[in-house]
Nucleic acid binder design. Structure first.
Lengths: 97, 97
DNA sequence: ATTATATTTCTAGAAATATGGAAGTAATAT
DNA sequence: ATATTACTTCCATATTTCTAGAAATATAAT
């Protein structure tokens, strides 16, 4: 069972800055959002931001595509949906019985 | 907005042992499960287990009620449901537009 | 009262994470 | 070529978390 993978994703979302990043990327929708734009919104040092983004990329919650000198980030909705499904199935259903 | 609270809950679920604890408690349903039973299932030292449980209690994901010398633990479904709602609302919906 | 069981708190070492400055890399513009 | 912009990687430090043994506490049984 790969609850490990889900735990990792939960852990990454379990940090205010990263959760904010993810939410901003969701707001960005299909267009996503370049790192620099995230930095403007969050007002944190570039190296710190980069660190958080790379963690989310590693667990598959964020995808990045380079566009010239911008690095555009996208929220990986499917991954989050799978995570939500896991939580719902593994952690809620039995309550109804 | 108190995304901080949700981030804390996500962080607590974002640890394999604690996620396992929560899932076991869900399986326990209305009866919950005493700490000792969790320990049997997980096979980790009592102090370690206690540490993880107390963290989940602190963020409201687990409730405990003493029964003689047993301490019975319950999954707080409502809290998890609110967390899931948050994830769904804040992090998914905009995609459809 | 003493003993046994169930669990927590204390303590401390090891490992992981967070943060941000400085230096490095990639892409573009001049 | 070199300067600028947009990032990342490297590094060091501070902080948190994890883990588990040992001691303490709570409840019940003898």
């Amino acid at each position: 069972m790969n609850s490990q993978k889900f735990a990792q994703q939960l852990a990454e979302l379990g940090h205010v800055t990263r959760l904010d990043i993810f939410r901003l990327l969701v707001k960005g929708g299909k267009n996503g959002m370049p790192v620099s734009h995230l930095q403007d919104k969050l007002g944190i040092p570039a190296s710190t931001l980069s660190h958080h983004i790379s963690r989310m990329v590693q667990v598959g919650l964020v995808r990045q595509i380079r566009e010239g000198r911008l690095l555009r980030c996208y929220a990986e909705y499917q991954k989050l949906n799978k995570l939500i499904s896991f939580l719902t199935k593994e952690c809620c259903i039995k309550d109804n019985i």
